[in-house]
Simulated assay, not measured.
Amino acid sequence: MPRLYGFDNQALTRVRADERQVVREAVSRIRAGQSQAEVAAWMTAEGHRGTMGGEWTSMTLGRLLDNPAIAGLERAPHTGELVETGRQALITPEEFRELEQRPGRRGSVRSGESREPNYEYLLAGGATVCGQCSTPMTGGRTGAGTPSYRCQTSRGGCGKVRITASLLEDHVAEHVLGELARPGSRTALDQARKEAEVEAQQLRERIGELEKSRTELAAPYAAGQVSRDAFVAADKHITESLKAARSRLRFVEQAANVPLGGVEDLARWWEHAPYSSRRALVLLLLNRIVVRPARARGVRDVDDRVDLNWRAADAA
């Protein structure tokens, strides 16, 4: 099976910098209004070829742009919802979701075909964890199609906790707005952003060390100094550590880059801010959101089952 363009291996753990730049340029051109056919023709004219050496066509480019792996995402097996994997990415999840609605794409809202709209989960990607087993909760629809957050056994969780997305997000938004209205909120945000920047740099260094360890591990294995079982176990541990570090880095980078320059009324800004900006602000204010099981089936009260872990010690 050929590798995915932009990546150096089947596990999608190493990116080819030159191909990543080509993909980013292609995405920028499509977002600027060029068609897939025009972009594919540009890629071929510039001498870029697919992983099997073939010229780019509208069809082959479309298959690449429809693969969520280019944004570090995958589709949940039962719901089809996009969830983060923690792997390397060529473009951002937001850019991928925008690409899903590009003109001419099958199922696009601009293609004339019926398609259930994607739900943008404000608190996924590590922000929300299961109160039973501490596993990060993922976004996904119920059998009735209701967007929810849930702990999934397929991701190592207990599978016992689920909460309707709108209930949780409204609850968090209410408390976030309360924090933004408090005196000194701007100072607290600035301090939190500085802390996020420091953590991001530490994570980048940690990722570099892990990648170096993986490279150094190959030599003794090739020389027969390390057994295959030991090599596989060590490589698996490094891979899991890299996945966790990269996932956390994306989480922290969003918090560090929240766009608040020139904003005076933070509460009013929240009401009209785009999804990505509101999400970044939540990540800046909160370390994590813990969700416990409901007292009984159908109970919609979330106050007694949600704990908000604030970055600032004096937050509500």
Rank of each mutant, 00 (worst) to 15 (best):
A223H: 01
A312T: 04
N9V: 04
A233N: 04
L203W: 14
L82H: 08
E113N: 07
R63C: 03
R97H: 06
F231I: 08
E240G: 09
I238K: 00
L123K: 02
L82K: 12
T146N: 07
R24I: 05
S154H: 06
R182K: 14
T187R: 15
R155E: 09
G131I: 08
W42T: 13
A223M: 12
V290G: 04
E84P: 00
A192T: 00
A245Y: 02
G72Y: 03
E81L: 07
L122M: 14
V299A: 09
R97E: 09
G140T: 02
A32M: 06
P103R: 09
A233S: 08
S134M: 08
E100A: 11
A11F: 05
E209L: 11
D170I: 01
R97A: 02
R3Y: 06
P274A: 11
T146W: 04
A256V: 03
R31W: 02
S277E: 14
V291G: 11
V263P: 01
V83W: 11
R268I: 04
D170H: 13
E211P: 02
G261F: 03
T239D: 12
T57K: 02
S28Q: 12
H78F: 11
R97V: 05
R141S: 11
H272S: 12
L203F: 11
R295L: 15
Y275I: 04
F96L: 06
Q201L: 11
E81T: 08
Q191C: 05
N9E: 13
L64F: 05
H237D: 15
S108C: 04
L168H: 10
R300D: 15
R248T: 12
R193H: 03
N67F: 01
R3C: 00
P117G: 10
E195H: 12
S35L: 09
E195Y: 01
R186P: 02
C133G: 12
R292M: 10
Y149D: 02
V27N: 13
E253T: 06
L123Y: 09
A89S: 14
A127Q: 15
L242Q: 06
R311I: 03
P136G: 07
E98A: 15
S185Y: 03
D18V: 10
M137E: 08
Y221H: 15
V290M: 00
S28F: 08
T92F: 11
A244M: 02
S277V: 04
T13P: 00
A188N: 03
L283C: 00
M52S: 13
L90F: 06
R311W: 01
V39E: 02
G262M: 05
Q10T: 12
G262E: 06
V302I: 12
Q201W: 09
Q132N: 15
T153N: 05
P259W: 04
E98F: 01
W56M: 09
R24A: 01
W310H: 07
L210Y: 10
T79F: 12
W310V: 07
T215E: 13
S247Q: 15
P136W: 05
S227V: 06
R16L: 14
P136A: 11
R248F: 07
A11M: 07
G157V: 07
A144Y: 08
